[in-house]
């Protein structure tokens, strides 16, 4: 069983996200280790990109902060190797396609494998275009994690039946960012996916509070929280450790 698969054996998964290099690589390292200790079951690491079209303002600003530090893919791989010396928590990269293409697709996935990356999410590489990376991600045993959106409808069949790792179910329309309301028919989409595959379904986009986490964990296998954590880092910068521990601990505890 893959490292990602194992993460779901212990119950509902809490999956926090941070942008690599925000505010510095050293802090990213510390925050990842602390999140793993505080109960994070999988950690998503965002690779900074100049034009993150699927992100809301909070994560856009994190990308800008990281790029000001000249964060490179090489740096993120080094960070991952260092994390691997301390913890086995599954690591999933979230990156736009262009940095992968520039690095070389085959080289990228081989380096993922060597560095201990378990999965990769590419928000601007939909199913139809995934044929150009799958031979390389499969060969390197890196899960290519796909997204399903409220608009996916009849596409759900092919997305679910080809899914690897976990399915990232987008909670609502639009870009990433904290929301007060989450679509109320999400459980129906989860049911539909469950009829097609055993791959775990995790819900992300807009989740912020414990009560949202609790509600969604009633029907989903995991929840993904990005902007809320990136906001903590934006507010506390180098001193976000305690706040992150507090937040991850309470969100993990909220899952049913």
């Amino acid at each position: 069983m893959s490292n990602i698969g194992k993460a779901f054996l212990k119950g509902k998964a809490f999956i926090p996200f941070i942008t690599a290099g925000d505010p510095t690589m050293e802090h990213s390292y510390n925050y990842i280790i602390e999140m793993a200790k505080s109960g994070a079951d999988i950690i998503e690491i965002g690779i900074p990109f100049s034009d993150p079209i699927a992100e809301g303002p909070v994560i856009q600003r994190a990308n800008i902060r990281a790029l000001k530090n000249n964060v490179t893919l090489f740096d993120v791989f080094s960070l991952t190797k260092k994390v691997r010396e301390k913890t086995n928590v599954p690591i999933v990269y979230l990156t736009y396609y262009n940095p992968i293409l520039k690095f070389g697709v085959e080289e990228f996935f081989n380096t993922c494998q060597k560095s201990g990356v378990d999965g990769v999410i590419i928000p601007d590489l939909p199913f139809e275009e995934s044929g150009e990376v799958l031979p390389f991600s499969n060969k390197a045993h890196v899960d290519l994690i796909s997204l399903i959106a409220p608009t996916s409808k009849e596409r759900i069949y092919k997305l679910a039946t080809n899914a690897q790792g976990y399915i990232y179910l987008v909670s609502s329309m639009g870009v990433t960012g904290v929301r007060s309301e989450i679509a109320n028919d999400l459980n129906l989409i989860v049911d539909e996916i469950r009829n097609l595959t055993d791959v775990p379904v995790c819900v992300g986009f807009g989740i912020n509070t414990e009560s949202q986490a609790r509600e969604i964990s009633k029907f989903a296998d995991g929840i993904i929280v990005g902007s809320a954590i990136v906001s903590i880092i934006e507010n506390y910068c180098e001193n976000a450790k305690d706040e992150i521990i507090k937040y991850v601990t309470k969100m993990k505890a909220a899952l049913i």
Binding site: I53, A54, Y97, P123, D124, L125, P126, F127, E128, E129, G131, S146, L147, I148, A149, P150, T151, S152, K153, E154, R155, L159, V170, M173, G174
Partner: peptide, 20 residues
């Protein structure tokens, strides 16, 4: 399944939310 190719160029590299 790839649509809209001009040689190797073109395609539909967009988030799933917009695909349909």
């Amino acid at each position: 399944l790839n649509l809209g190719r001009y040689g190797i160029f073109g395609g539909q590299y967009i988030p799933e939310t917009l695909m349909n």
